[in-house]
């Protein structure tokens, strides 16, 4: 998405009604953010928007990049900037690539299934078939299990964070072009195209 360098554009303050709508949209896409939303978007904070090339918009608070979205896509779903993922890693569903795939992902290549199905990769365990009902005791929670597998199977089109074997921090974020169940069954084909990754134009963009 941001293979090329992006130059800084002026930021514009957002009306509070727009800020509220974004907050709602975030919580709908990322229910696990509920615990952190007041820290990410303080009630009195002043969220700003920066227009990026190719009809993308980046949302910035106090100089810190938070989310971005591509207005050209029909779903228009918000994706977290990797710096936000690093701050709140357990709030976003994730998969893990093996060590060998890291350098490809960091050069902007499409993430392919073998990087996930190999011993170093981690796809969801899928023990959780639906998000647990609220207050349900003893149920499996949505999140990472001991084997670093997300407990819920992820659908095609869902946003997902990419972690890497042997690394603490996530290295990319994007939309699944194949559901994780399908990836396991087929074991080949593209999984994420056009991700935002460490070192890409968005990562290097100055936002302060």
């Amino acid at each position: 998405m941001f293979k090329k360098d992006i130059s800084t554009a002026p930021k514009s303050k957002l009306k509070s009604s727009v800020q509220r709508a974004l907050r709602q949209s975030l919580l709908t896409t990322y229910p696990l953010l509920n615990n952190y939303i007041d820290e990410i978007l303080p009630k009195k904070g002043s969220l700003e928007a920066m227009k990026l090339p190719d009809r993308c918009t980046l949302y910035v608070l106090d100089g810190q990049p938070l989310f971005f979205q591509n207005d050209a896509t029909p779903s228009n779903t918000l994706l977290p900037h990797l710096k936000l993922v690093h701050r709140f890693p357990d709030a976003f569903p994730s998969i893990r690539i093996d060590r060998g795939a890291i350098r490809f992902v960091l050069s902007g290549a499409t993430l392919m299934a073998p990087g996930l199905t190999s011993p170093g990769g981690r796809l969801p365990s899928g023990v959780l078939t639906a998000p647990p009902a609220e207050g349900e005791e003893g149920a499996v929670k949505e999140g990472l299990d001991e084997d670093e597998r997300w407990t819920r199977e992820l659908e095609k089109g869902e946003p997902v964070v990419v972690r890497a074997e042997g690394k603490t921090e996530a290295c990319a974020v994007g939309f699944l072009v194949a559901g994780t169940k399908e990836v396991k069954e087929k074991g080949k084909g593209p999984v994420i195209e056009d991700a935002h990754y460490l070192g890409d134009g968005l990562w290097r963009l100055a936002t302060d």
């Binding site: 952190y36 820290e39 690093h86 701050r87 890693p89 690394k167 603490t168 921090e169 290295c171 990562w203």
Partner: peptide, 19 residues
């Protein structure tokens, strides 16, 4: 209690140092 993690980034290449 703030939940935000603080991550150190490389002063040269800007990535997390493990990368």
């Amino acid at each position: 209690e703030p939940q935000s993690r603080h991550v150190t980034y490389c002063g040269v290449c800007t990535l997390p140092p493990e990368y």
